[in-house]
């Protein structure tokens, strides 16, 4: 027991000290600062709050109010750029470097398809669907170091990102999720515990349909034929040889895709997951089957 090993030293010091009881414990000295009355020349003054009025009473004017002037936020003409900002969809970014970090530290399993649920499950990516977050935007920081063969489904991706993933033999899909689905994907366990049936995924809103049906952005509603053409086109543009998917040993994993109405991999809408008894309730009623297949 070296005398300078701090933990061992303090524990061995305790051996020869009286027993720690309720009577002889205390906080660290100086950890609590008690408020004291000011003394001296300005001790009994206004304590920096000025004389009378809103300063002393701390009832400050509302933000932006300029005591009767035309306030700044109304004086500036309307910026068209901000039109409808409260309706715009947000995609919190995640860089390829961060994704590589997750993969290196085994936070996501690359032997299975990666989707927004597994990214959130890693604990190092947060999404707030109630704050108009509509999923992950995979950005191209670290595209040159990225070296994992993955099947990933994101909500937004640029051309460089698609190239970086396909160069390594991976597959990327961009897919739309409505906020309800994202809430469920954010914490699937909590949703399963409510005992409700898995809902259907909604189709994208009109202004997003173009993105998600385009093969160039690897949209989930695009024609697979066109996507393979685009894959080849992109490889020629960026100058890499496209690895052959068909001869890949992980072909099944790499081509695993969700149905446009599906929220989770392998689980159909309409099913109820019972976590306690580890069983799945599947509807057989014609009416329900029709509803969930729509």
């Amino acid at each position: 027991m070296g005398s300078r090993q701090i933990t061992e030293k303090s524990l061995s010091m305790l051996r020869s000290l009286p027993r720690i009881t309720l009577a002889n414990i205390r906080d660290n000295p100086g950890s609590k600062i008690t408020q004291k009355r000011g003394r001296g020349q300005h001790g009994g003054d206004k304590h920096g709050a000025g004389n009378k009025g809103s300063g002393q009473r701390q009832n400050y004017m509302r933000l932006g109010y300029e005591t009767g002037n035309n306030p700044f936020y109304l004086r500036i003409p309307h910026e068209n750029y901000y039109r409808g900002h409260h309706l715009k969809r947000e995609y919190p970014p995640m860089t390829l470097l961060e994704l590589q970090k997750l993969i290196d530290r085994n936070r996501v399993d690359i032997s299975k398809p990666i989707d927004i649920a597994s990214l959130i499950k890693s604990g190092l990516y947060t999404l707030n669907p109630d704050q108009k977050h509509f999923g992950v935007n995979l950005t191209d920081d670290g595209a040159d170091i990225f070296a994992a063969k993955i099947n990933i489904e994101v909500q937004w991706a640029s051309e460089q990102v698609i190239a970086a993933i396909e160069k390594n033999g991976g597959v990327i899909t961009t897919a739309y999720y409505d906020p309800h689905s994202l809430f469920i994907l954010k914490n699937p366990q909590r949703f399963f515990e409510t005992g409700q049936a898995i809902p259907r995924r909604m189709i994208p809103p009109p202004d997003a349909i173009e993105f998600y049906t385009s093969a160039a952005t690897r949209g989930y509603l695009a024609d697979p034929e066109k996507i393979s053409q685009e894959r080849l086109k992109l490889s020629q543009k960026y100058g890499y040889t496209l690895p052959n998917l068909e001869s890949d040993p992980q072909y099944d994993m790499l081509t695993d895709r969700k149905d446009p109405r599906q929220i989770f991999f392998g689980l159909q809408p309409g099913w109820v997951i019972n976590l306690k008894d580890e069983c799945i309730l599947k509807p057989k009623d014609e009416e329900l089957l029709q509803f969930y297949s729509m």
């Binding site: 109820v272 069983c279 799945i280 309730l281 599947k282 509807p283 057989k284 009623d285 009416e287 329900l288």
Partner: peptide, 8 residues
């Protein structure tokens, strides 16, 4: 509604 319970 008619449904089936699938164990394991």
């Amino acid at each position: 509604y008619n449904y089936e319970i699938e164990k394991n």
